[in-house]
């Protein structure tokens, strides 16, 4: 869907659902996922429909992901860091996960 205009910026290695993803310093989690071409970042708690980042400005809450163990974070507001673990959220979260 998206390509990087210039491959500038320091490489940042994050892990998405256990797989390495190359991000760049200055990426938010949501932007890194889009740049990596992920299809969706969560499924809804109501019907299980897939969702992907939609507004990228903190309004829509579609980019909710688990970041370093903390669930339902707004991926578009959180800058990536080396070694960050991102998990896509499937339906309702388990309490304690």
């Amino acid at each position: 869907m998206f390509k990087r205009l210039a491959d500038t910026g320091t490489a940042v290695a994050i892990v998405v659902d256990g797989k390495p993803v190359a991000a760049r310093a200055g990426d938010t989690v949501a932007a890194a996922l889009l740049a990596a071409g992920i299809d969706h970042c969560r499924t809804t708690p109501v019907t299980g429909a897939p969702r992907a980042p939609y507004c990228l400005m903190g309004v829509c809450f579609e980019c909710l992901v688990t970041v370093d163990g903390v669930g339902s974070r707004q991926g578009c507001l959180i800058p990536v860091h080396d070694g960050m673990k991102v998990e896509t959220q499937i339906g309702k979260r388990e309490a304690g996960r």
């Binding site: 200055g26 507004c55 400005m57």
Partner: peptide, 25 residues
């Protein structure tokens, strides 16, 4: 409008300004 692949134009503009991402498909 909830399908992955549908976004707001503002969102795409944010990705351009902040991360230098441009629509390629």
């Amino acid at each position: 409008w909830t399908l992955p692949g549908v976004m707001t134009a503002g969102g795409a503009q944010t990705a351009l300004k902040a991360q230098g991402l441009v629509p390629s498909g």
